[in-house]
Design a protein around this nucleic acid. Structure first.
Lengths: 231, 231
DNA sequence: AGCTACATTTCGAAG
DNA sequence: CTTCGAAGTGTAGCT
């Protein structure tokens, strides 16, 4: 990994055209050839970058560029597309190289899958008398997150999201259309479950007779821990 | 901006819990306090990070950690949430600080807005005899990208995306339901226009009687340039 | 390889 | 200030 701090300007051409005026920035060249161009703020997203696979070519500036104060020209060309990043470096403040080795990678815990597992265990959150049929109930257009038997007959199809957006309601609607054609399952009611449900999504769901269930992840995990401790 | 290259392990707790085993990585501390933890590959996305506003506190390890080889402990706490990033540094290979100043920011050109403008100018791409009513035609549930008059009466509602996905078809369907209730507009046909239309989206659109139009951005821009040059 | 859904998404614009 | 859609999205999982 090579780290360079320098005043530079940059131009990207590819899926769009973009230009960065002259300023001091951090340039990171990774082992796979990818290049990041970071400013001293913002978020984790670079101002400009080139994703691998790509190749970096460093050249000396032509007379015109040299007259403008350019000392190095970096051309980063993507291997499989016409995407190209051109960087003109002026003053180089820092330049160092480091051997990092392969990274073992990130280990995650606590996403949608976990919510699904917890709700399957705590199926009564749908209301008394409900019982789990199964998680990932397969249909022709994809798996329903949770299918449960309703207390007065019929079933409940549950769509789970971390953030309940309008497209989640659309997805559940498609499942319900299909499931209600099955006489062994019908009538199938829909429940849209999420840690947070957007107002527009709630309106659309209610309008279609779909129930909304806000999930408290911490509380559900607490119940899970308490149950685990009993055994 | 502070740059550190060190062997380290990290733990993130917040919206999820994640853990990074010991390895050599780049740590970037930006002027706004945000921290990025990069490996020597992947993409522009860090393995772990903390977005601003947040504060970094550097402490010395306790005896237990010191025995494991930890020389520094970084605790990055988000200012408005419980998000927290804890980094244990072992061997520090590099550590430098740099003054970068404010960045003028990126100048972009060539996104969906441009596609919309070009299609509005080249409305005959919808077929001979079409004429533009207006861009961003307002409805109760949002603006339709383009509304045009059809040659044999009635209208055409166009939804424009760079990448034509299934949710774009859903969006257009909602507009069409609404627009067709207006006797001054009906019948309103739908056209789904995008640089690239996903197979699933095309199937759904066709099933609903919505036309698909693949837009060639370069060609459309070429026509635009040619027209501009005449004046 | 292609496609789908998720993301600690981030980012920007509009209401 | 929220809300909502786009992104040069990236990424993982599955067919």
């Amino acid at each position: 990994m090579r780290l360079v701090v320098a005043t530079c300007s940059a131009r990207y051409t590819g899926r769009l055209n973009a230009h960065l005026p002259l300023a001091t920035r951090l340039l990171v060249v990774k082992a796979d050839g990818s290049v990041l161009l970071h400013s001293d703020g913002g978020s984790y997203k670079p101002l400009n970058w080139m994703s691998p696979p790509c190749t970096l070519k460093t050249t000396t500036p032509d007379d015109d560029a040299a007259a403008r104060g350019v000392t190095q020209v970096w051309t980063v060309q993507h291997a499989k597309s016409d995407d190209r990043l051109e960087i003109e470096l002026h003053d180089v403040v820092h330049d160092s190289e480091h051997e990092l080795g392969v990274d073992p990678g990130l280990i995650k815990d606590g996403v949608e899958a976990h919510l699904q597992a917890l709700l399957a265990e705590q199926i009564l959150l749908l209301g008394d008398g409900h019982s789990l049929v199964r998680r990932e109930y397969m249909t022709a257009i994809g798996p329903v997150d949770i299918l449960a038997r309703a207390p007065q007959g019929g079933h409940v199809a549950v769509e789970i999201k971390r953030r309940g957006d309008i497209d989640g309601v659309e997805q559940l609607t498609r499942y319900l259309d299909l499931l209600n054609r099955d006489p062994l399952l019908a009538p199938v009611r829909g429940v849209f479950a999420a840690q947070e449900i957007k107002p527009q999504a709630r309106v659309l769901a209610t309008d279609r007779g779909i129930g909304c269930l806000v999930l408290d992840y911490e509380a559900m995990r607490g119940v899970d821990d308490a149950e685990s401790r009993l055994f």
